[in-house]
Design a protein around this nucleic acid. Structure first.
Length: 437
DNA sequence: TCTGGGGTCCTAGGACCC
DNA sequence: TCTGGGGTCCTAGGACCC
């Protein structure tokens, strides 16, 4: 069964090359063609590398301290992650992409899928090159484009395009669709574990069954895939065969949970500090909740020690509580968070991380008003609470996060994460723009 | 001394109801 | 008193993504 290429949909995956490094370079052009890395929160491990840093052999996800000396020796520039900057650059890139297709899904901070079916009358490769040029000119960010009849194949095309310099960042696997042998050869070069939707565990499982490449995976029987990799895996395999199972989703699905958690800059042993951190993260999660006009039914808290320290006593636990009434009111959430921490916290451990989770989310004004609340005056008190929250949110938005705070979040916050190498908030804070000269 | 954070989806199994 | 089957909802755990 072969479908003529001309009747297939055209999915394009646009992804930003080494996105976080590219963002830093926009404001530090002196770093172009030089090795650059960006570290995770807490300056823990490497989460983005420029091509030069990749060539030096710095692995993705590598703990920073293990490679610190080598990076110094080779003149690698190191940044702490600056999500305010990356988020803002991302929305600029996405805005440009939106002008190239009416049908777009923003998939992640550095990737978007576009449907280009309507542009088939033009030379698609040229169209994609125009897009690259426009994004580069207007935002300074280099991107690559992969195209194919399904999202999974567009992803693969993107990888291929990056590997082959002659492609100049654009590759369209649909062009080969009428010559199956050529498609086979392309899929032979892609490891099964590099296919979108196949992670470490499945890659190991597949290797155990002598499935090593994307082509071998594509040719496995449906029932076998269904049995070992659930329906999600079957969709992946169908997509490798050119049958689209995942359409674009222009409107993002409503959020189901909000998580705020971070590792400490140093081990925390006292209840007082753990409680400050829980309160601090809860405050942030509540702000996000209100920003998105949601309320939460369920609050969760997690605590854990450092599992990398085999010689230390380990403890990790997570608990949730359901609220009688869903809320977005920070003081209520702080109260629940404290109650949960009281239940979870045990003396005698060196804690590495705490976190909070809000779930059971629903639109704030979607629910019915509660007759009992009206009768007891609770509705009026809710209105006063809303006013207070709106005021604190507005002050913090205007004058910067933390201008007004809940005392429970602590003042000194000695447990906070390390961020030694953070670049200025060039695009989101006028005061910090002054640093650019 | 030093190893990230924030999400989603699927499945199996148990509780509960009729 | 005992017996059966089917449906729904919830939760925990495992897989994935960037």
């Amino acid at each position: 069964m072969t479908v003529a290429a001309s009747s297939l949909p055209v999915y394009a995956l646009v992804d930003c090359n080494n996105f976080y490094c590219s963002c830093e370079r926009v404001f530090r052009p002196d770093l172009v063609n030089r090795p650059v890395v960006v570290l995770s929160n807490n300056d823990g491990c490497v989460i983005a590398r420029s091509n030069e840093a990749k060539t030096l052999g710095i692995p993705m996800g590598a703990p920073y301290y293990k490679h610190k000396q080598m990076m110094e020796r080779t003149g690698t520039t190191v940044f702490s992650s600056n999500y305010a900057l990356y988020g803002d650059m991302s929305s600029r890139v996405m805005q440009v992409l939106g002008s190239f297709s009416p049908d777009m899904e923003v998939y992640s901070i550095d990737e978007a899928f576009l449907r280009l079916d309507g542009f088939r009358s033009r030379d698609l490769a040229r169209y994609a090159q125009d897009l690259r040029g426009q994004v580069a000119q207007w935002t300074g960010i280099p991107v690559s484009v992969g195209m194919g009849p399904t999202r999974t194949l567009a992803k693969i095309a993107g990888r291929v395009g990056k590997k082959i310099p002659a492609c100049e960042g654009v590759f369209d696997i649909s062009r080969y669709w009428d010559t199956p042998a050529a498609v086979d050869r392309i899929l032979d070069t892609v490891a099964a574990g590099d296919v979108w939707g196949v992670g470490r565990r499945y890659a190991d499982m597949l290797a155990g069954h002598r499935v090593h490449t994307a082509r071998q995976l594509r040719d496995m029987p449906d029932y076998w895939v269904r049995k070992h990799m659930t329906v999600t895996g079957l969709h992946t395999v169908l997509e490798l065969r050119g049958i689209s199972c995942m359409d674009l989703d222009a409107a993002p699905a409503p959020r189901r949970s909000i998580v705020s958690s971070r590792s400490f800059g140093r081990p925390v042993e006292t209840y007082a500090e753990a409680h400050e951190a829980v309160a601090d993260y809860m405050t942030r999660a509540a702000e996000k909740l209100r920003r998105e006009s949601l309320v939460a039914h369920t609050v969760g808290v997690v605590v854990r020690t450092n599992s990398f320290k085999k010689e230390e006593a380990q403890y990790s636990s997570f608990q949730t509580r359901n609220l009688a009434r869903p809320t977005d009111y920070t003081p209520f959430l702080l109260q629940e968070g404290k109650a949960l921490l009281d239940a979870l916290f045990k003396e005698g451990y060196r804690y590495k991380k705490v976190g909070v989770m809000l779930s059971g989310l629903e639109p704030k004004y979607g629910g019915q008003y509660n007759l009992l609340d009206c009768m007891t005056g609770e509705t009026d008190r809710d209105k006063a609470r809303d006013t207070l929250m709106r005021a604190t949110d507005a002050i913090n938005a205007r004058f910067g996060r933390g201008t007004v705070e809940f005392a429970a979040g602590g003042v000194k916050k000695e447990w906070q994460m390390r961020q030694e190498f953070r670049s200025p908030h060039y695009t989101t804070d006028w005061k910090e723009l002054a640093v650019v000269r």
